[in-house]
Amino acid sequence: MTKSALPKPIIIDLPYQSIDDKAEIEKAFVEQLGYETLSAVERETLHYIFDYPTVYVVHSKKRNQHTLRPEYTVYVGETNNIRSRTMQHLREDPKTRVDWKEFQENLQSDARSVWQYVIGNPHFNKSLTLDVENRLMHYLLGSDAVKNLNNRRTNAQGDYYTQDEFNQIFSDIWMELNRQDPELFPAEEIIRDSALFKASPFHQLSDDQIAAEESIMDALSEALAGSGDSADSGLSRLIFVQGVAGTGKTVLLSHLFYRIATEMDINGRINDEDDEDILETDSSLKISKEDRRKAYILVNHNQQMHVYNQIASKLGLQKH
């Protein structure tokens, strides 16, 4: 299938608690299509939203009291069952997660204060939705309107069937999101010019970067677990990464910092599970905020330090 023949994304923006409200769903779909009513064929298209893998973007907007500029709190995820996932987020996550507690409080004061973009496509499969999720995190990090950006787990995927369609499918998704809300989803060229985009931990790593990262993560895990050569030394571990300019050291550093801060517990255990459906049902795979390994990054460059501060603040790795 040629790129021009790829199916267009199906995107609806719903009040978060309206996932089972048929009238609200059809109203949102009508607005997205620009029609007055839906035909039977168009109603059938909703099958790709509720019965296929989907990606979703939960968002809540406030105005900064000083600048009056919009500030969004955003959660990005993917799932095989959007109805079930929505209910799980509403029931369980506010008990343990600050970001979902904020969403819950907003919903209690105004039922239409939290909305959710649900994104479907007839070509979606698990790997493709994981890649869309990862790149949405990458792009939204570069959106000035996003103040808080969260998700459960994100890793760019390796090779898979239909990977050659990914770039075009994502570009179509972002273009449609930009059409619906240019404030939250700026044009691609604006995002790509952002310093946060360029230093983002959500870049897809090269094979060499992946090999270096895994080697470093394994060494850290071994040291923290008290095994191997460093078990009895009681000394810190110093790891050097060398490479000429342009080989991706900055991106690797950002990616490593994010993984250490979100995937490694105090004993060096690494949870790199990227399937949110599994994480929701198997609590043993989750690492609580209290059990996470603390990570710090030292940057000998004022401008780059500001960029890393912004990234860490948006991703909830440090206080604003």
Results as ranks from 00 to 15, higher is better:
H320A: 14
E222M: 12
T86P: 06
M87P: 01
I119G: 10
P70D: 00
K286H: 07
T54K: 12
G234K: 11
I210C: 01
I82M: 02
K22Q: 15
R292I: 10
I270R: 09
S194G: 04
T2N: 14
N64H: 00
A40Y: 07
L177E: 11
A187G: 11
L184T: 02
A211F: 10
Q157F: 07
I278D: 14
L68V: 05
A111D: 04
R192P: 01
Y72C: 00
I12Y: 10
D181W: 02
A156K: 03
K319Q: 15
S284C: 04
M264R: 06
S84N: 09
N81Y: 01
K319W: 13
D277M: 01
D172A: 10
Q318E: 14
V299C: 13
E276W: 00
R237I: 10
L224S: 05
F103S: 02
R69Q: 02
D181R: 09
V41Y: 12
N81I: 00
A199S: 13
A199C: 15
R91H: 04
I216C: 13
K62E: 10
L33W: 06
L252N: 14
L128Q: 07
V307P: 13
G243A: 12
I169R: 04
E165I: 06
G142F: 02
V132A: 07
P201K: 14
Y16E: 12
D272F: 05
P9Q: 11
Q304K: 11
Q104A: 06
Q116Y: 03
H320E: 15
K27W: 05
S200P: 14
M137K: 01
T37P: 01
A231Y: 09
Y117V: 04
A187L: 10
F166H: 04
V241S: 08
R85S: 01
K198W: 08
E189C: 06
D265W: 00
D193T: 10
L38R: 00
T79V: 07
A261R: 12
D172S: 08
N64C: 00
R91Q: 06
G142I: 11
Q310A: 14
H66I: 06
K126P: 00
I119T: 09
E92P: 01
R83Q: 07
S288A: 10
D99G: 01
R152L: 02
L317E: 14
E189W: 04
S143E: 00
M137S: 03
L224F: 12
E176F: 02
Y16K: 02
H255D: 15
F103C: 04
G77A: 03
F197D: 06
